[in-house]
């Protein structure tokens, strides 16, 4: 599946992700990692579940508002992965990010910006594992 190279839009979007991380640090003193935030609103709830829930609601609402105002075509979403593999992927991601205590946002953005060596190790590991998985699926097994 071909996707359009969007350096400027991706840089602007990335900067907004950074701005969100800075806002959450400035106001709440918290790391904007989706794994940690989401885990805190799963039972048993974290004591400070309120800000977590509202962050997640905001994150879900933003694309919904953008598509409602500017039309469904403003946000490109493409996938051709069979549903059973989407489920397997979700299970692996859930187990993995729990044990790694973070994902692309927590380790990749916030952790690297803190110059955390743990986050660097985690980011290099998951980037390498992702690249290897994509290579094996697409170029060794011939895709789904």
């Amino acid at each position: 599946m071909i996707t359009e190279f969007t350096p400027l839009l991706s840089f602007v979007g990335g900067s907004l992700i950074g701005l969100a991380a800075v806002l959450l640090m400035l106001f709440h003193g918290r790391i904007a990692g989706m794994t940690g935030i989401l885990t805190g609103i799963l039972p048993p709830l974290a004591k400070d579940w309120d800000w977590r829930l509202f962050f997640v609601i905001g994150a879900i609402a933003a694309p919904a508002i953008i598509t409602a105002v500017y039309g469904p075509d403003t946000i490109t979403f493409q996938t051709d992965i069979p549903m059973v593999w989407t489920i397997i992927s979700g299970l692996l991601v859930g187990v993995g990010v729990f044990f790694a205590s973070g994902c692309t946002s927590g380790h990749g953005v916030c952790g690297l910006s803190r110059l955390s060596v743990r986050s660097l190790a985690a980011t290099l590991t998951f980037m390498a594992a992702t690249a290897a998985t994509v290579f094996v699926i697409r170029h060794v097994l011939g895709g789904f």
């Binding site: 397997i88 729990f98 390498a128 594992a129 690249a131 290897a132």
Partner: peptide, 12 residues
Amino acid sequence: GAAIFGVGWGIA
């Protein structure tokens, strides 16, 4: 954990 996450991320 990061390796398992990466495999899952690479699938979907």
